[in-house]
């Protein structure tokens, strides 16, 4: 939790009371590889801050195939925000791709911080804005970039991620087939 507090303090002034409150409502936990944090169809009440490790959110289509929506590495937040915002059951699965140290918060309790400690609001807003920017970029990249360019960008954004992801996780994130991904990798290796 220390790291997250440091991160918050790096962007906003945080009172001691607010700091103590955030520590009190958080729970730090190490999840082994393969742990499922959120399961499609079940209720969702938590948001997760990744202290270390790698977490993936994905949906399963009606044919049973997985499609990766997001990877969360060090200092990223992840949850099923659709489920939380609309108070619905989860449409996503969230799983740890390697052993991950996670700080979890109850979504409603974390929201309560804003009422109790308004100084926290810019930090929360910044997280949301970063999320929106990241989603916009993802859509724009899909529209504008070639598969090879998307892959380059992906590796820049998530360095070393290939060590603990499977090809189909990345291919489905980029919206390309596994064969295309293999082809791109072979071409890159030639260069």
């Amino acid at each position: 939790m220390e790291e997250l507090i440091k991160k918050i303090k790096g962007s906003i002034p945080l009172s001691l009371e607010a700091e103590e409150y955030l520590i009190a409502i958080s729970r730090e936990k190490v999840f082994p590889k393969g742990s499922i944090l959120i399961r499609q169809g079940q209720s969702v009440d938590k948001v997760y801050f990744v202290k270390s490790g790698c977490v993936r959110s994905y949906c399963i289509d009606k044919n049973g195939k997985e499609h990766t929506l997001q990877f969360a590495i060090k200092s990223w937040w992840i949850s099923d925000y659709i489920a939380i915002h609309n108070n619905e059951s989860a449409t996503l699965n969230v799983e740890c791709l390697k052993e991950s140290c996670i700080i979890e918060f109850n979504a409603k309790t974390l929201d309560g911080v804003l009422t109790l400690f308004p100084e926290y609001e810019p930090f929360q807003r910044n997280i949301l804005e970063r999320h929106i920017v990241s989603l916009y970029k993802r859509i724009l990249n899909q529209l504008q970039l070639t598969a090879s360019e998307s892959y380059d960008l992906f590796l820049k954004q998530y360095p070393d991620i290939e060590q603990y992801t499977r090809n189909y996780h990345i291919a489905s994130y980029l919206g390309i087939t596994q064969e295309s991904l293999s082809r791109i990798r072979v071409e890159k290796a030639k260069k």
Binding site: Y58, G64, K65, E66, R166, Y168, S172, Q178
Partner: peptide, 11 residues
């Protein structure tokens, strides 16, 4: 668990 990258029919 079934392979994640193929459909139910393929599995």
């Amino acid at each position: 668990k079934k392979p994640g990258n193929i459909s139910f029919e393929e599995a």
